[in-house]
Simulated scan of single mutants.
Amino acid sequence: MKIGIVIFPGINRERDMAIAFERVVGVSPAMIWHGETSLPKLDMVVLPGGFSYGDYLRCGAMAAHSPIMKEIRSFALKGGYVLGVCNGFQILTEARLLPGALLPNASLRFISKDCYLRVERDDTIYTKAWEKDSVFKTAVAHGDGNYFTDAKTLEKIEGEGQILFRYSASTGLVDSNDTILNPNGSLNSIAGIVDPTGRLCGMMPHPENMVDPLVGGEEGKPLFQSILETLTS
């Protein structure tokens, strides 16, 4: 199994993501500079969190036009898997590889805290190791994580099962109007989505933060275990 992590100027979570894959999956990812114009042979590309290009213009807007993104788009169209976390999710929406946009948090403040996610599907490469409706603790750290899209697109992604994770209480309760349970004000408490094929995933919270009990817990490990199960089966 071959994983590649893309590094953009300002990205700062590439090492966290690499460590998560090394510890849970046993794979040392290749680090790919955003200015490259080709990809090595890979099974999955990961766009990590951080502040690409300092979040100037809009979060992810400049990174979406980096040279490597042309190859990532081609990689995705040919059946490759792409995971974008936090700024990586923003980049995927700006590149129109995933629908919607990540707006400033409803509080207009940067949020860095633990939160709970409810798993909406257990049949994707990213969620096989969980059961549907299970809840796990993870962390958010962003200023622009408020997922938004138009009503027609929202109806489509809800109806076609493209929602993977929702912000929730530890009990699984979802309440989009509760600023504690839905920390950034996302529509329908959406924390993570996939494209219609299920191969492209974007999520705002950081599962890579939760793979070691010494730094908060291991509740993010099932995401990486799910990837391992799919790509080695």
Rank of each mutant, 00 (worst) to 15 (best):
E155W: 01
W130A: 04
F110C: 05
S112V: 11
L97H: 04
I68W: 03
A141W: 05
P67V: 07
E71Y: 00
E160P: 02
A106C: 02
C86W: 12
R166C: 10
T171I: 07
N105V: 09
F89N: 08
S170H: 01
D122F: 02
E131C: 05
S134Y: 01
L103E: 12
E120V: 01
F110Y: 09
F75N: 07
L98W: 08
A129V: 00
M62G: 00
A63W: 00
L103P: 00
L154C: 06
L164N: 13
S74K: 15
E155M: 08
H65A: 09
Y167T: 10
A64L: 05
A101Y: 04
F75W: 08
L92V: 12
T93C: 15
I72M: 07
I163W: 07
G79A: 13
I163L: 12
A139N: 05
S168K: 04
L97Q: 09
C59A: 15
I91R: 08
S74C: 07
K113L: 11
H65G: 00
T124W: 01
F136D: 03
I72S: 06
F165V: 09
R121N: 05
D133V: 01
M69V: 14
G79Y: 13
A139E: 00
D122P: 00
Y116L: 07
N87Q: 13
K113S: 13
L117S: 10
S112G: 08
A151N: 06
G159K: 12
A169L: 08
D133T: 04
L117G: 09
D150P: 09
E120R: 11
A101N: 02
A141N: 14
T93I: 13
R109T: 08
L92R: 10
D144I: 11
I125Q: 01
A151E: 15
G159L: 12
V140K: 03
I91L: 12
G84F: 13
L117I: 10
K70A: 15
Y81Q: 10
P67H: 06
P104D: 03
S112P: 00
G159R: 09
I157G: 08
I68Y: 01
V119R: 04
K156I: 10
E71V: 02
F148S: 14
D123C: 06
F89S: 12
L98T: 09
K132T: 10
K70Y: 10
D114Q: 05
W130Q: 00
F136S: 05
A169S: 15
I111S: 01
I125R: 05
Q162F: 04
G88D: 07
R73E: 13
L92P: 04
S66V: 03
T127G: 02
R118C: 07
I163N: 10
E160A: 13
E71N: 14
